[in-house]
């Protein structure tokens, strides 16, 4: 990957991370199990206090917000353990996951 493309991807990842953190902030606003000092960007979902249902809620919200369809395998990937990890992954993959149908709903 060229330096320019690398920079573009980094900047894209940062923007996505901000977007995802906003999603997470929304859905954890009423979650009394989330520590007040949690870093929603870099802490692992486990440390933030998300269980498997919370996690699915987060993913479904991402799909709606970004108009993408996340493949089932990604939900089983332990490497996608934080907003930061999701943002890096989406910076590379979001375009191919785009779903016009979802966007039109």
């Amino acid at each position: 990957m060229s330096v320019a493309a690398d920079l573009q991807q980094t900047s894209s990842a940062e923007a996505i991370a901000a977007d995802l953190a906003a999603v997470l902030r929304d859905i954890t606003a009423a979650n009394e199990l989330v520590p007040p000092d949690a870093d929603l960007v870099s802490d692992s979902f486990g440390a933030i206090g998300l269980n498997s249902v919370d996690y699915l809620e987060f993913v479904l919200n991402i799909e709606s917000r970004l108009n993408i369809d996340v493949p089932d395998e990604a939900l089983m990937d332990p490497a996608l353990k934080s907003v930061l990890a999701w943002a890096d992954w989406l910076a590379v993959n979001a375009e191919r996951l785009r779903t016009p149908d979802l966007a039109a709903r």
């Binding site: 979902f45 486990g46 998300l50 498997s52 996690y55 699915l56 089932d72 939900l75």
Partner: peptide, 10 residues
């Protein structure tokens, strides 16, 4: 059976 591993299934 599971939709997501999350932190429940590591």
């Amino acid at each position: 059976d599971v939709a997501t591993f999350g932190s429940d299934y590591t």
